[in-house]
């Protein structure tokens, strides 16, 4: 069968079947489990992501507390693994980005952010959950807002007032006629670009990654269900691709947790720095 001949068949696939699973749509990310009620037209529900993130918090709290409750000079196995992650955030992220003078007070927040994002991202490929919490934008926004408030708070406190803070943002030696433009750009960076990119990067990666996996896995399933034998056969490369993309997603999920933490640390670092 030629490839051109496949196209109409696939087109008919989405139309036929029970409701049509393919292609996956953004609507698939809305997964309410328990409906509590409505406020006007606004549904108040417990979604799958809310359950997953609470599960992750419970798991992380249990693991972290139980492995560090009796933190010893010579670590046990559990403490060793916890220290591996903790050292990564503490030394390779916080210390490098913030500097050895101030970094320690940011370590708890950065470590919390990192493990929370990492575990929730990995849930995207861990059965039976297989759903990245951060593909629901409410969660990245919440985490970003925490980072946003913290770095502005320490910046304003360090520069003694909001006006000084804005003054501090402007690099020295800027000619007068450029000042309005620079002030505008700096304000844009500090108040809009940074939080927007921080939240959207995490959300976009998780959303698109899950979509991609869904395309290959559900697509393969649809192909298997097709009547033509040749289409059933094409399901194999689709699932192989899904497998490869799952591994790739694992990497992306780690990287996004890392990037989010790294950028948060760099924002904290620039806020406690003496010079812009």
């Amino acid at each position: 069968m030629s490839f051109a001949a496949l196209i109409p068949s696939l087109g008919s696939l989405s139309a036929e079947g029970d409701g049509g699973h393919f292609p996956p749509t953004p609507e698939g990310f809305w997964q309410p489990l328990v409906t509590l009620g409505h406020i006007g037209d606004y549904p108040i529900v417990i979604t799958r992501s809310m359950v997953v993130i609470m599960l992750s918090v419970a798991l992380l709290s249990w693991w972290l507390v139980s492995t560090t409750k009796r933190a010893a000079v010579v670590p046990g196995k559990g403490q060793h693994y916890t220290e591996l992650v903790y050292n990564f955030v503490r030394n390779d992220v916080a210390k490098d980005m913030i500097g050895s003078k101030d970094f320690l007070r940011f370590v708890p927040l950065l470590f919390s952010l990192f493990v929370l994002i990492l575990l929730n991202n990995l849930f995207g490929i861990i059965p039976p959950i297989q759903f990245p919490t951060m593909s629901r934008i409410g969660f990245p926004i919440a985490l970003t807002l925490v980072v946003y408030v913290v770095y502005h708070w320490i910046g304003i406190k360090k520069q003694h007032g909001f006006l000084n803070y804005v003054k501090w943002m402007i690099p020295p030696g800027i000619p007068g006629w450029l000042l309005p433009l620079i002030v505008f750009l700096e304000l844009l960076t500090f108040f809009i670009t940074r939080p927007l990119t921080l939240a959207l990067r995490l959300f976009g990666n998780m959303f698109a990654g899950h979509m991609l996996l869904a395309v290959f896995i559900i697509g393969g399933w649809e192909l298997v269900q097709a009547d033509t034998f040749a289409l059933k056969f094409v399901a194999l490369p689709a699932w192989l691709m899904a497998f490869v993309m799952t591994l790739f997603e694992g990497l992306v999920q780690f990287l996004q947790a890392f990037v989010f933490t790294l950028l948060a640390a760099s924002y904290f670092g620039s806020a406690v720095a003496d010079e812009h």
Partner: peptide, 23 residues
């Protein structure tokens, strides 16, 4: 999908808040 569902946003705060406190 880029508009947050408010209860999820609140759960996000609660989640990071609890974890931060524990950590």
């Amino acid at each position: 999908p880029i508009l947050p569902y408010l209860p999820e946003l609140i759960f996000g705060f609660v989640a990071i808040g609890i974890l931060y406190w524990v950590v």
